[in-house]
Design a protein around this nucleic acid. Structure first.
Length: 882
DNA sequence: GTTGGCTACATTTTT
DNA sequence: TGTAGCCAAC
């Protein structure tokens, strides 16, 4: 039943501690016992870090502030467990959130313990990759075969769309994408179709939500596939339904480590608890030093699994005891609440794992005292946190304060940031050491434009990835069908690629046949090709397709997979299709296909490769180029840079209006944590910017400085760009003007911000950048540079890490302006319906663009021909009659 | 099967 | 304002 395979030798291991491993570990132990001095790997740890490493038994929560050596603690802890012979590698489970983190840990552990020296590695990976590993072993318990494939989000949406249509629902009214999101949310909470709240079920598809969810799960099963959520959800269900399976894992894993615990969602939490909590008296807790038993409080002990449907722990009435679980995280860096992460998981750790040791890492090795001071002061405005105060011994009077700058609008902001970067560059700073971290991706555009004109190398990180490119998906679809002929979604994607004259009608017919006979579409296609139900042309085409796949599937056993992959792309006519394509992207796509084949070499089989692609969506990129990084604050988590620029600190953008509207106070707190993450990325230099005018949805809006600026402590901040009255530092951090209630209706309740007047000095300088040659060149260049993933223009290089050809939308910003105060006036009303007080041809004045004549009026939106700035659309509230 | 015009929408994103 | 996605028309 348990289906353990050969690489789990521990079943024969004695119950007692394993014999000490060989190699470095043994030497470490020897060194320890003979000289009574710490082994090498412990050297250089501070006392808290060392405590976190050496407290191996019982539940431990390490609250690791930004830059306090979190990864080091985790990896050293693993090394320590191994070196002291507490466990074999295979008895350690280490979970991370991202592949990047997993990779980094693997590397570091390899360095610490010497790769060749230990038999096997710990189970180290992302929740999802470990989920796959588990699920492959017990696939049959989830109604799958062990060679199941993993669908990507695109497939999921297409599948759901089919189901919605099959239910005769209007797929416009009930968007598949939305439902996919709902399913994902449910799975993130560990909810199956029968467990979702009635309200949820009713809210979609004329009350057919539950039915659709069920149909979806059934469909996945017949296709022998999983979605991402299933990788967590199935193991949880298996653990619950088959206690003996779970028990095997209880015996297996003696030590569990979790990275970024603040980001766990409910499902991940359940998964962890199932693995970590075991029946009392079980031998699994034998190694515990009894701390966990002693300190147990009654409250949660009888409630083994929290959550709406957290059934009883498999062990029944026995009191659960947790293993040696060590979670590392930082509640102040929890920024993924919007996708289901529960900060609460970390805040409640000591209740969930009674008797937990909590260790704080507060000594920061990254940033200057000014940066830390600013960050700490800001984050202190949040309630509901463990409370940590980062400190550093560093005390260099040369260190710069945190700079706050004002700019008139986003262009000026980009220009000024560009200048600052060039200034640093002149002081021999590397571009690689600088980063611009934005709240929303639409902000990136201004910087890109500017840097292209300047010829400044930059690198955009984030966005759609390698595997999401059209040609990669197509190629993978071919491979998937070869690997799993039941993968109808992949089949549908490529039956008619390249074009073979198989239109909708034929595909429908294949579909229907497949459904009727309960066979995969590929097989149905093969049968149809042999029948006379089709017209000669599609029939011949199908016959060829079927013959191709049959041949490739046979070849799978005999041909090396890279070779086969190449053959498939050749024989299917796919490569030719792009070779014959004259469009600009075609060569790049062929290049990507080559890259794909090349990357397959590292994997031992086609299946292994497909799994890798499904789980690891990032394209690994060399960073040979010296370039400024531009990315969102979210993707900056975990990174550090010498110099950091944080533009766009304005109300509505940061904190984002939507976070405020939808998340209320907790939304605001998450935004604040995001700000904290941003601040703490900087090692030495930190520059924050805000503008007074921003173009949002094509309209110029006046903005007010972010409340977060007022939350920065005066002592560590230097407000740059002098020359104007900032109204002194009156009411610096406005004592909780917004600390109560959820945002309140009005946006600027702390009116007396010390930043209110900054930027005003620019009034009257109608910098007409649009008309400059520079701007126009930037426009022209932009298209060219962004069309390719790698644009090389006259020595200037642009790198897009993870960006595919779909340059996913710049347009973004704020959805609604309701309730938003602009220059002291509530705009909501005027946006809605108040007709403009102006007439066509009126002469008006605008702060940014100067004088002009009204060319068109659309409600309160005016199109104005400005004398200098050309035609612009602005809200009527921003112009005055002349 | 492609193309153009229309509409809806515009935060963050991993796996 | 920009764009993606969809449908109707060639």
């Amino acid at each position: 039943m348990s289906g353990f395979s050969e690489d789990m030798p521990f079943f024969d291991e004695p119950n007692a501690r394993p014999a000490a491993p060989s190699g470095i570990a043994a030497r470490a132990m020897a060194a320890r016992s003979t000289q009574n001095s710490a082994p090498d790997y412990l050297k250089g740890l501070n006392p808290e870090q060392r405590l976190a490493v050496e407290t191996t038994e019982g539940p431990v929560l390490v609250l690791a502030g930004a830059g306090t050596g979190k990864t080091r603690v985790l990896t050293t802890r693993i090394a320590h467990i191994l070196a002291t012979g507490r466990a074999f590698p295979s008895q350690i489970l280490a979970v991370t959130f991202t592949n990047k983190a997993a990779r980094e840990m693997k590397q570091r552990i390899g360095l610490l313990i010497g790769e060749g020296n230990v038999e096997g590695m710990p189970w180290l990976g992302t929740f999802h990759s470990i989920g796959v590993k588990l699920l492959r072993r017990h696939a049959e318990l989830a109604g799958l075969k062990s060679d199941f494939t993993i669908l990507d989000t695109d497939d999921v949406v297409r599948l759901i769309k089919q189901l919605i249509q099959a239910e005769n629902l209007d797929d416009k009214r009930w968007p598949a994408k939305q439902f996919a999101q709902m399913i994902d949310n449910w799975k993130n909470k560990g909810l199956g179709p029968d467990e979702i709240p009635e309200g949820d079920a009713r809210s979609f598809g004329n009350g057919k939500g539950r039915q659709l969810y069920k149909a979806y799960q059934e469909r996945l099963q017949t296709l022998n596939t999983c979605d991402f959520g299933d990788l967590l959800y199935h193991p949880i269900r298996i653990f619950r339904a088959y206690p003996d399976v779970l028990k095997d894992y209880h015996r297996k894993f003696k030590y569990i480590l979790v990275d970024e615990y603040q980001d766990t969602n409910t499902a991940q939490y359940m998964w962890l608890r199932l693995l970590a909590q075991r029946p009392n008296g079980g031998r699994a807790s034998a190694s515990a030093d009894s701390r966990s038993a002693e300190g147990r409080k009654p409250d949660r002990a009888s409630e083994p699994l929290r959550g709406p449907h957290g059934g009883p722990a498999p062990a029944g009435a026995e009191q659960p005891v947790s293993v040696n679980i060590c979670c590392v995280g930082d509640d102040d860096q929890s920024i993924y609440g919007w996708r289901g992460a529960e900060v609460d998981n970390i805040l409640r750790f000591d209740k969930d794992f009674p008797g937990a040791t909590i260790i704080r890492l507060e000594r920061n090795y990254r940033s200057t005292a000014h940066i830390l001071g600013a960050a700490s002061h800001l984050i202190a405005h949040n309630e509901g946190r463990f409370g940590k105060t980062l400190f550093t011994d560093r005390d260099d009077p040369e260190d710069d304060k945190v700079h706050v700058h004002a700019a008139w609008d986003s262009e000026e902001e980009a220009r000024a940031v560009g200048e600052a970067i060039e200034a640093y560059q002149r002081q021999k700073h590397n571009l690689n050491d600088m980063a611009i971290l934005v709240r929303a991706s639409f902000q990136m555009r201004a910087f890109e434009d500017r840097f292209i004109t300047l010829g400044l190398n930059y690198r955009v990180i984030g966005g759609p990835r390698f595997y999401e490119r059209l040609e990669i998906r197509d190629a993978l679809a071919f491979f998937r069908v070869v690997s799993n002929s039941g993968d109808d979604l992949a089949f549908e994607r490529i039956v008619n690629v390249p074009k073979r004259g198989l239109g909708e009608a034929t595909i429908r017919q294949i579909h229907d046949t497949a459904r009727a006979m309960q066979i995969p579409m590929l097989e149905a296609a093969a049968r149809l090709a042999e029948s006379d139900e089709l017209k000669p042309k599609p029939r011949a085409a199908l016959r060829e397709v079927a013959a191709n796949f049959e041949r490739w599937q046979k070849a799978l056993e005999t041909t090396p997979h890279t070779e086969l992959a190449e053959t498939i792309l050749e024989e299917s006519g796919y490569t030719d299709m792009w070779k014959n394509d004259r469009s600009a992207e075609a060569p790049g796509r062929l290049e990507n296909l080559k890259e794909l084949i090349r990357s397959m070499e590292e994997y031992e089989s086609l299946r292994a490769f497909l799994e890798h692609v499904a789980l690891v969506m990032e394209a690994e990129q060399g960073e040979s180029l010296d370039a400024v990084s531009i990315m969102t604050l979210h993707s900056a988590k975990g990174l550090e840079f010498e110099t950091v620029f944080l533009p766009g600190w304005e109300e509505g953008l940061f904190p984002h209006q939507r976070a405020l509207d939808e998340g209320g106070r907790s939304g605001l707190e998450e935004e604040r944590r995001l700000a904290y993450v941003g601040l703490t990325r900087a090692k030495k230099n930190l520059h924050i910017w805000f503008v007074s005018n921003r173009l949002i949805h094509g309209l110029w809006q006046s903005t007010i400085p972010s409340r977060f600026l007022d939350e920065l402590p005066e002592t560590h901040v230097d407000v740059a760009d002098g020359g104007n009255s900032y109204g002194g530092y009156g009411n610096p951090y406005g004592g909780g003007a917004f600390a109560s209630g959820r945002g309140g209706g009005r946006q600027n309740p702390y009116g007396a911000s010390r930043f209110d007047n900054i930027g005003a000095k620019d009034q009257g300088s109608f910098s007409n950048t649009y008309a400059t040659p520079g701007w126009q060149r930037a426009q022209a260049n932009r298209t060219e540079a962004t069309d390719r993933n790698w644009g090389t223009r006259s020595g200037h290089q642009v790198e897009r890490i993870g960006y595919g050809e779909t340059d996913s939308g710049y347009g973004a910003g704020r959805t609604s302006v309701k309730g938003r105060t602009i220059e002291g006036e509530l705009v909501a009303k005027s946006v809605a319906d108040t007709p403009s007080a102006f007439k066509l041809g009126d002469r008006v004045f605008h702060q940014k663009f100067g004088n002009g004549n009204i060319a068109a009026i659309d409600g309160n939106k005016l199109t104005i021909d400005f004398d200098k700035a050309g035609q612009k659309r602005v809200l009527d509230g921003f112009v005055t009659s002349v």
